[in-house]
């Protein structure tokens, strides 16, 4: 029995090693490529060990020769804006869907779900003309608005099932103690679904940070570009050295990974509380 368990632990560890290598390799390859001189890269002489001593050189080239850091700052504005706006609206809407019965609840719930089906490529043209009319083209705030439309429903689903699990008696007790519905939401519900809020925050943050299609069609000024459009502009051009391009990719990836790892524990528990099931 113990021998069998040891064996299965061994198999598990081996499988985990394999999966970890598969998942980790492209990441490792970004680092490795960023640390290899461009001349070596194009001669097919990329070694398997990154030359870490090049780190500082590579990043100083990135900061001085390209406006990439500025684009990242724009990405940060878009991502945080999307997160904030999505969470505020999603929390309130999720609370209404979880706790109240009202006329039109079904259609409204379907509306939130249906946006998950809408292809961005279909909406990009009508949204372009809408944003032109609203004067929101070339503006980061425009990107926040459009990203929120796609990110907010996901946050809503996570939060709704989390709020479903908050004991209703807590809210009734707060009502007896004199809380208004808005106070109940702030004082009782939000602190109690904090892990799910974190999970929703990470997911909406990624939406804002990664988004490319709307960013590339709505933002024309090079200075207003975001990280994703800036990075994509390197694809297929040869004036920027490849190691610099990959260092940009690395720098663009690191904040997302750090943000994610910091929240990882909360994401798993947040997804458990707001488990996607049913």
């Amino acid at each position: 029995m113990i021998a069998r368990r040891r064996l299965s632990t061994g198999v598990r560890a081996l499988l985990a090693l394999l999966l970890t290598c598969l998942a980790g390799f492209p990441l490792f390859w970004i680092i490795n490529t960023a640390m290899t001189p461009t001349t070596d890269l194009f001669q097919g002489q990329q070694r398997l060990v990154p030359d870490i001593s090049r780190t500082l050189d590579v990043f100083s080239v990135l900061t001085t020769d390209t406006p990439f850091l500025g684009w990242m700052a724009n990405s940060a504005v878009v991502a945080f804006g999307t997160t904030l706006l999505s969470l505020v609206m999603a929390t309130m809407a999720a609370y209404a869907l979880s706790r109240y019965k009202f006329v039109g609840k079904g259609p409204m719930g379907f509306l939130f779900f249906a946006t998950q089906m809408l292809p961005e490529a279909l909406l990009v043209v009508p949204l372009y003309s809408l944003f032109a009319a609203l004067g929101l083209l070339n503006q980061l705030s425009g990107l926040v608005l459009v990203n929120t439309a796609f990110a907010m429903p996901v946050a809503l689903f996570i939060l709704k099932s989390a709020i479903d699990n908050v004991p209703y008696e807590l809210e009734e007790s707060a009502r007896v103690d004199g809380c208004s519905p808005l106070s109940i939401l702030q004082v009782m519900v939000v602190p109690l679904v904090a892990p799910s809020m974190a999970a929703a925050a990470v997911i909406t943050f990624f939406d804002g940070w990664n988004e490319y299609l709307f960013a590339t069609t709505f933002i024309r000024d090079r200075s207003s570009w975001v990280g994703s459009t800036g990075l994509a502009s390197f694809i297929g051009e040869f004036s920027t050295p490849l190691d610099t391009v990959f260092s940009a990719a690395l720098v663009f990836t690191i904040p997302a990974i750090i943000f994610f790892l910091l929240m990882q524990r909360k994401i798993v528990s947040g997804l458990t509380a707001g488990s996607v099931k049913g």
Binding site: L19, T20, P26, N210, A249, T253
Partner: peptide
């Protein structure tokens, strides 16, 4: 194993 989720799509494409 969860990191690929955090890698921005454009960076995924690049690599």
């Amino acid at each position: 194993m969860v990191m690929p989720w955090a890698v921005p799509t454009v960076a995924v494409v690049l690599v």
